[in-house]
Design a protein around this nucleic acid. Structure first.
Lengths: 353, 353
DNA sequence: CTGAAAGCGCTAACAA
DNA sequence: TTGTTAGCGCTTTCAG
C-alpha cells in the first residue's frame, strides 16, 4: 500500500511515457518491415515518398526515439568525435572548443570532451575511453606533462583519424593546426624594436614545450634581424603566471640589468611585470614597453592596456575540426597530413605604443 | 601497381593493427566462454582471481579494446550525461563545465556537450540528440530565447533525469543549482551603503530574465533595509556590456542626477562606468564606488581593481553533476527535487574600499 | 565458479 | 520499391 501511495504522490497526473518504441513497433503498425521503416527514417532514395511520409507520421505519433547506440553498433561507428584538452576553463581553449563544437554539430557528429588536467596519465585514460567509445576521430592538444608520443601513436596505429592542435608532438605525423609562435614572437619583438627598445627581455615558458621554444627562437631571430644582439641573461624560462612575472621583474629592477622592453610568452607574466613596474613608477611604455601573448580578455582592460598576440582560438577549432572530418570522411585509406598554421595577430595597445 | 606503391608510401614500416579483437577472441585463446571473459573483465565477484588474471593478461596481449557501444546497447544505457549550455566560451560557463566534467568522469560517465547558442530551436535539437544517444541524464542551462518549458517537460516525461543550473525555468519541477542573485545584490548594496554611499545607481540586465530581476529586487530591498529610498530613476535596464555602461555613466554624469555608487549586474558595464569616471577625473571609490557581478578574471587586474560577486562556477558545476548522478543512480523511481542555492561571495577590491 | 543461449535495436547484403 | 535474414559485440539469466 505504502509504495503505491508513494508513486501516486510523485506522479499525480501524468503517465510516464517510458515504453520504448522501436522500429518494429512502427513497422507493425503500418504492416511494413523493420528494414523499410529504417530506410524510410534514413531517407533512403529507394523508398517511395508515400511510405516515407507514412513512416514519419507514425514515428511522430508514437513518439519514436531512434536509438543512436544501436545504429552505431551496427554501423561500426558512432558518428562522434573525441576531444582531449588540458583544461576547459581557459579562455583560449574554450574558444577552440566553441569552434570545434560548431563544426562537429553542423556535420552531425557528437562531441565527447575529456580534460587531461595537464596529466599524462589522464590523457592516456582519456584516449582509451574515446577509443572504447568508438569515436570516428580524435582532436588533441597535449598536456604539459606529455613527454612521449607512444599513446598517440597507438591510436594512429589503430587507424583512428587524429588531428593535433595548439600544443602538439612533432614526432608524430598527423595533420595539425597550430599557431605560428615563431612569427608571433618575431612580430612582437620587431614592434618593440621599432618603438626604440634596445634591451628586450623575454619571459618564456618551459622551453621543452615546442610552442615556447618557438617563441624564444622568434624572439632571438627578430633581435638579430633587426640589428640587436641576443643576450642570454635576458631570457627567463618558466615565467608564465602573474606572480612569477612580478617576481622576476622585481629581480631585474633590483639588479644592474637594464631593460627597456619585455616580450612575455604569457599575458599573465606580462601583467605581473606591469604591476612591478607600476609600483616603482617605471613608466609604461616610455621607460619599458611590454607585450604579452594570448590576448586574454583582461589585456584590453588593464591600464595601461596590454599589447598582445591574438591566437584566433575559434578559428583554430573550426580548422582542426574540419581537417579531422575531412580525414574521417575521405574514402582513401590515407590522407596526406596537412599543417595549418595560423599567424597570431599583434594587437598593439598602450603598453607598447 | 600504383595503388600498391601508394599504400606502401604511406605505411612504410608499420602494420596497421586494425583487426578488431572481441571478447570471443580472448575467450577462444584461453578456452573459456565469452560470458566468463566478460565477467572477468568487469571484475565480477564470482570469477576466480586466477582466471581474472589470465583474462586481463590476454586482453592486454591482444590489445583488446572493449566496445562501449555494444555494452551500452546491451545494458540499455550508455553511462553518459548530456550537457546543454548556451555557449562554451564564457568564463563562468566554462568553469561550470570544468566542474561538471570532473564529477562525471570520476563517476565513469562520458560527457556529451551541446551549445544552444542562445537559440531555442538549437536547444530543442540538442535535447533530441541527447535523448537519441540514450544519455542517462541531462544538465541544462537554458538559452536567452527559451520562453517555454515544453521541450524540457517532454524529457522529464520520458523519465530522463534532468537538472537545471544557473539559468532555469521555474515552471518545471527539477532539481537545480542556482545563484542567490537576490542575496548577492543585497550584499553588494549593503557594502556600498556601509562605505557611506547614499545615492546608488543600478545597471541591470533585462528584467524579464529571472536572474536579473532578482538582482534588482536585492538591490531595492537592501536600500530599504539600510535606511535609503528606492529611486526608480537610478535603475537602468539592459546595461550589460562595456559600451552600454560607459554610455549610461556619461549620461548620468552629464545630467543633474547625483550618484555616489553603482551596483552593476555585469562586470563589463561596471568597467564601462569606471572608464567614464576616470575620463572625468571622478575618483573611485572616493567620489563613486563601483561593484560589478560575476567576478570576471579581468576585475582583479583593472585599476582600480573592481569589486565584484563571485559565482563559484566550478562549484556550481560540481554540485549540479552530483545532483544529477544521485538522481540517476537512486533506485527509487522518484527523488524529491532539490534546489541548491549558492550564495555569491562579495569580493571587495579597490573600487569600493 | 563457469557455460549456454538469448537478445539489446538497428542496418545492410541479398533476394524478390 | 520492399522483405528476409543475419548479425554488430556485449551482458545476463538460467542452468550446471
Amino acid at each position: 500500500m505504502q509504495s503505491i501511495a508513494f508513486i501516486f504522490y510523485f506522479c499525480p497526473n501524468k503517465i510516464m511515457n517510458s515504453k520504448k518504441i522501436t522500429i518494429h513497433d512502427i513497422a507493425r503498425k503500418l504492416n511494413l518491415t523493420a528494414s523499410t521503416v529504417s530506410r524510410a527514417l534514413n531517407n533512403h532514395p529507394k523508398i517511395s515518398d508515400a511510405t516515407k511520409k507514412l513512416v514519419h507520421n507514425a514515428a511522430k505519433e508514437l513518439n519514436y526515439r531512434p536509438n543512436t547506440i544501436a545504429a552505431s553498433l551496427r554501423r561500426g561507428k558512432a558518428k562522434s568525435i573525441g576531444l582531449v584538452i588540458p583544461r576547459i576553463n581557459r579562455n583560449f581553449i574554450s574558444n577552440t572548443i566553441s569552434g570545434i563544437e560548431k563544426v562537429t554539430s553542423e556535420n552531425g557528429y557528437n562531441l565527447l570532451i575529456c580534460q587531461s588536467e595537464e596529466s599524462l596519465e589522464k590523457e592516456i585514460n582519456n584516449l582509451k575511453t574515446l577509443v572504447n567509445n568508438r569515436v570516428d576521430g580524435i582532436l588533441i592538444s597535449i598536456s604539459l606533462e606529455t613527454n612521449t608520443s607512444k599513446h598517440i601513436k597507438t591510436i594512429i596505429n589503430d587507424g583512428i583519424p587524429l588531428v593535433q592542435f595548439d600544443r602538439f608532438r612533432s614526432d608524430i605525423e598527423t595533420s595539425k593546426v597550430i599557431n605560428d609562435n615563431f612569427q608571433g614572437a618575431y612580430d612582437a619583438v620587431k614592434h618593440l624594436i621599432d618603438k626604440g627598445c634596445k634591451r628586450i627581455a623575454h619571459f618564456g615558458g618551459a622551453d621543452i614545450i615546442s610552442i615556447y621554444a618557438e617563441r624564444i627562437e622568434g624572439y632571438k631571430k627578430s633581435l638579430i634581424d633587426n640589428g640587436l644582439e641576443v643576450d642570454p641573461s635576458l631570457i627567463f624560462n618558466k615565467i608564465l603566471n602573474k606572480e612569477e612575472g612580478y617576481k622576476i621583474a622585481n629581480k631585474i629592477f633590483d639588479s644592474k640589468i637594464k631593460i627597456d622592453g619585455i616580450f612575455a610568452a604569457s599575458d599573465y607574466s606580462a601583467l605581473g611585470a606591469m604591476l612591478a613596474a607600476r609600483e616603482r613608477n617605471i613608466k609604461i611604455p616610455e621607460q619599458i614597453a611590454i607585450i604579452g601573448f594570448a590576448n586574454e580578455p583582461f589585456t584590453e582592460f588593464v591600464s595601461p592596456s596590454l599589447s598582445s598576440l591574438d591566437q584566433f582560438g575559434v578559428e583554430m577549432g573550426i580548422s582542426a575540426a574540419r581537417l579531422l572530418i575531412e580525414k574521417i570522411e575521405s574514402k582513401q585509406k590515407e590522407v596526406i597530413p596537412k599543417t595549418v598554421i595560423i599567424r597570431p595577430k599583434l594587437i598593439i595597445r598602450e603598453s607598447s605604443k
